[in-house]
Structures are given as structure tokens and as C-alpha cells.
Computed example of a mutant assay.
Amino acid sequence: MDGFQRRREKKKEDILEAATNLFMADGIQNVSISEIAKEANVSQVTIYNYFESKQNLILEVFNYYIDKSVRDFEEIIHDTIPFPDKIKQIIFRKKETAQQINEEFYEYIMQDFSAAGNYMENKYLEKALPHFTDFFQQGKEQGYINPNLSMEAILFYIQMISHYFQKKDFHADVLPLTDELTNIFFYGIVGKRDE
């Protein structure tokens, strides 16, 4: 990639990062192209040159957010920290995201998630699912996950939750429960007991 292309990609990423942060904080409808331009330190014309419309930008932001979430998950899975610390990091990031994300932005994500053949589901099948398999295998090998649980049962459980998330209007109830659902999911498998 030459210098011009690198600068172009960097500018596009700056716009996507600025838009993601603003959408997460204030929602989609409350954020203008001019605010995104100011945050990204570019002109409004530049944003339209890259994305053509706010709707296209929203779609690109959504994909950018999903890709970034998958990269963050991969980073935790492949870290050398102990398995329980990986679970804590996953829960902490979910909790942090749940506290920061604007409800309108979250609803947009979940509406896309409920559509057949959506980007999130494709990314899950392509990237996250193999990492989940590795992750749970690590947990079994280190004695944190019941070795009698088959990988098929664990993955079926994940799929079951995933399909439930796709129900119409379910997303409105999920956001306040993200931390608890994540805890139930992981510590239900690990068998953590409160002292």
C-alpha cells in the first residue's frame, strides 16, 4: 500500500472511530455529519466523499464496530493470562460497553442481528465461533470447564442464546441485563460459587 492509500485508509478509520464514539454516546439520530467531521478533524465533504450518505456511514460504522469487537475478543482469547482472568476481561468489557452504549445504537445493532444473513452473524460464524471453540478447549484443559461437557453442547448453548437474541423486540430488554447475562453464561459453565 502506497503512502496515499495509507493516508486515505487512516482518514477513513478516523471518521469511523469518531462516528462510532459519537453514536455510542448520543445515538444515531442526535449526531450530525458536521459533529462527526469536527470529531474526526475532517470536512463534511470528505465524509460524503468516503461514504456518500449518513445511512452508508451508519452501515460502515456498524461493520467497523463488529470487526473491532471481534478483534478485542480474539486478543483476549490468545492472551497468555490465566483462563479465569480471560473470563473476567470478557465480562468487564461487556459491562463497560453496556454502560457506555447509547440505547438507540444498541437497538440498531440488535435489529441488524435479527435479520437473516446479517453481518454480525456472518462474522460470528467466520471469526468468533472458531475462537469460542479454542477458548472453551483451553478452559477444559486447564480444569475450569467441566471436561464432560461436549463442545457440541457448549456451542449449541451459544447458538441457542444467539437465536433468542434475534427475536423481535428482545433487544429492548437485553441492555440493562448485559452484565448479569454474561455472568450467568460464563460462571454457569465454570461453576463459580459465591462465598
Rank of each mutant, 00 (worst) to 15 (best):
F73N: 03
A116V: 13
E152C: 05
I36N: 00
I189Q: 01
Y157V: 03
I109N: 05
L125W: 06
P84A: 00
T182I: 07
E121D: 08
F83R: 09
Y124S: 01
M120W: 08
G143I: 09
D14E: 04
M160S: 14
K95L: 04
V61L: 05
A116G: 03
E195S: 12
Q55C: 00
V190N: 03
E9I: 12
I189S: 04
Q55D: 14
Y119V: 02
I87V: 15
Y187W: 15
R93S: 12
N56V: 06
A25K: 15
V174H: 05
S162D: 06
G27C: 12
P176Q: 14
Y50P: 04
F4A: 09
Y124L: 04
A37N: 05
Y108D: 04
V70H: 06
K95T: 13
D134V: 15
T80Y: 12
K127S: 05
F132W: 15
Y50C: 05
K140R: 14
S32G: 07
T97F: 15
I87Q: 00
F62T: 07
I76V: 15
S150G: 07
T46Q: 06
L125N: 12
F105L: 10
V31Y: 01
R71D: 11
F136K: 13
F92C: 03
Y64F: 15
L129E: 06
I76W: 03
D79C: 12
A18F: 01
M160H: 14
F135M: 12
K86M: 00
E107H: 08
Y50Q: 10
E152L: 13
I91M: 07
D169A: 10
D173P: 00
F156K: 14
F165G: 10
D72I: 11
R71C: 05
